[in-house]
């Protein structure tokens, strides 16, 4: 029951968390910034519009964004928020979740290709390439978790036992895994050093170019999907980072929320102080992410057991 309430609250609050990020960016730019509830206003505005589909698109375009949203929601069900038991769990679910995410990405890609615009195909190919590199890094992270706890389920990694948590003093390579996960988060959610979510109609953009043809409710669903995806990755990182106060302690939830918000704030700070990479620098960045994860895995395999 508790975990259901927590799940629903987090999903409802996800747009608010993203708005915190915008506030931080505005603060760094010396502006007052847009209101915190801006994302809700945008969603309401978009849902009230009617759907417009281009005549060059097919059925795939009309279901693509729905499938993407569904996969992201389903993968959120597997996360043990704040160490409470998740709503769904089985052995091997981490691989399932990763491939669900890839399925969602696949549908984003083919709905972009479906529009027949050469511009969107460009974005799709870039997204496929970069997420392929990011996925290998994510798998390395999972391998390193597997060496701690020989199961393949997110619940067993993060739930009751305190094994995989940075605050455990013998887990010295885990901060590296945390950094690597943060870089994966930036890549997968197309945040600033990789891709700029604020740019439109630029030849260098990656993710935003794929959703150019969506409008109205479809665009609203895509926005919800991006908030939830960011929530998924930052919750995953939070589960690794947040300090725990014993089993079934109500302070756990508070510390979970605070760490989650801190991660959003740190994304905002990263976006404010860094410029976008040139496009040919991005693979190097991802190789560094992969090497960090691999390095941590090697250390864990060799010594931390």
């Amino acid at each position: 029951m508790k975990s259901l309430i927590l799940f629903l609250t987090l999903i409802v609050l996800a747009p608010l968390f993203s708005a915190i990020m915008l506030k931080i960016k505005a603060f760094f730019a010396g502006k007052k910034g847009i209101p915190l509830l801006i994302n809700y206003y945008t969603l309401i505005k978009l849902i009230q519009k009617t759907s417009v589909y281009s005549i060059s698109t097919s059925q795939i375009f009309q279901v693509g964004y729905l499938i993407t949203l569904a996969t992201t929601l389903t993968s959120l069900l597997f996360l043990p928020f704040s160490g409470l038991p998740p709503l769904l769990s089985f052995n091997g679910d981490i691989i399932f979740v990763l491939y669900l995410m890839s399925l969602g990405k696949f549908f984003t890609l083919i709905s972009a290709m479906d529009t027949g615009s050469s511009f969107e195909g460009l974005g799709a190919s870039r997204e496929a390439f970069f997420s392929f590199l990011a996925e290998s890094a994510f798998f390395m992270v999972i391998i390193s978790f597997f060496w701690f706890d020989e199961k393949l389920s997110i619940a067993s990694y993060f739930m009751a036992n305190n094994k995989i948590n940075v605050w455990n003093n013998y887990n010295f390579p885990l901060p590296l895994v945390g950094i690597s996960l943060f870089l994966i988060l930036l890549t997968e959610n197309s945040r600033v050093p990789i891709d700029d979510p604020a740019t439109h109609l630029e030849l260098t953009m990656i993710h935003e170019v794929m959703i150019l043809d969506h409008s109205g409710p479809a665009l609203a669903f895509i926005y919800i999907n991006s908030y939830l995806k960011l929530l998924f990755f930052s919750s995953f990182l939070t589960l690794l980072l947040f300090p725990r106060f014993g089993l079934d302690n109500k302070w756990n939830i508070a510390s979970f929320y605070i760490t989650l918000i801190c991660i959003y704030i740190s994304i905002g700070i990263t976006e404010s102080i860094m410029a976008r990479f040139k496009l040919n620098k991005v693979p190097k960045f991802l190789v560094i992410t992969f090497s960090l994860a691999t390095f941590a895995t090697i250390i864990i395999m060799g010594f931390a057991r």
Partner: peptide
């Protein structure tokens, strides 16, 4: 190259362990 060097570095770590 740099990426190749990083990978070789990882291989060196594995071999030295």
């Amino acid at each position: 190259g740099y990426n190749g060097s990083v990978f070789l570095g990882l291989i060196i770590i594995i071999i030295s362990i």
